[in-house]
Design a binder for these strands. Structure first.
Lengths: 143, 143
DNA sequence: CCTTGACCTTCCCGTAACTGGAACCCCTAT
DNA sequence: ATAGGGGTTCCAGTTACGGGAAGGTCAAGG
């Protein structure tokens, strides 16, 4: 297979596939004309990489996953631990985004969103603590 | 104020502050010795930037927010729209992470995590659809 | 007066994971 | 011969900084 065909089959852009070769994730053969030639196994590994990447694994994690995949004597515990760590990262990211979301949502709700210049969002970002009389206004939460 | 003081006050590293000047987010004065001198207003704007960044706004969004903040004739609707768009991005990101989480969680649950090499996680990443007999095994979801 | 140490300056490189584009080669069909 | 649709390499840009080198500045102490 040429790069175009494997790109179509895996859904990865040719550029990405070349990049993966450059960083040593795959090692396709070369024809006499200099073209890359991809085996079924190459295509399979690229599809594996595509799925791993779409699940948020970094390239280096993918490298490890691929090595474990190739190692028929691996312990599934090693794979599981890696994925659990990744899961923890994702949970942390989700929590962070939820916090942002909550703050932003409060700000948006407080903003009239009309032609007038007065804007609680900007006041919040500016660190304003609320004027006397706004008893329920609390400082904006930021990490 | 020198850069160290404003860094301490805003919580932003000096490197970041220099970077913000480089890309034109702030324009501190300079002393005869070449040192940056930060006004109260500079410090205030940097704190504003720090909060906006911590809420996930990109630098370019921060640039717009800062301009709106400075524009006393702005319409709060412009601010609100920007923040709502950002909120939508965050929601999209959260949804994406939840999908990853669900898939990864299923894979982790299916993996024994022991000394044996058999690993449903790797089989899932490899695109395996499940063997005959595993009636409930469905193809892994990926975007 | 000199030195020391903390602070400041600029400049350049590196990060993650690609994407876009230029310049050029290869193969097939007309 | 040429046109097109592949392929190739290499270079630059992206985001938002962080690390580190080489060197100027300032205040305090001996």
């Amino acid at each position: 297979m040429n790069i175009g065909q494997v790109a179509e089959r895996t859904g990865l852009p040719p550029k990405t596939i070349r990049y993966y070769e450059e960083i040593g994730l795959i090692r396709p053969m070369r024809g006499d004309n200099g073209y890359r030639h991809f085996s079924e196994r190459d295509a399979h590994n690229l599809a594996f990489l595509g799925r791993a990447r779409s699940l948020g694994f970094t390239i280096e994690e993918c490298r490890v996953l691929l090595a474990l995949y190739a190692d028929k004597g691996r312990a599934s515990a090693d794979v599981k631990r890696l994925v659990q760590d990744h899961l923890a990262q994702i949970d942390a990211k989700i929590a962070e985004l939820h916090e942002m979301r909550a703050t932003l949502s409060d700000l948006v709700d407080a903003c009239a969103g009309d032609h007038r210049p007065d804007c609680p969002i900007l006041r919040g970002l500016a660190g304003e603590q609320g004027r006397a009389g706004d008893a329920d206004e609390s400082p904006m939460k930021v990490r």
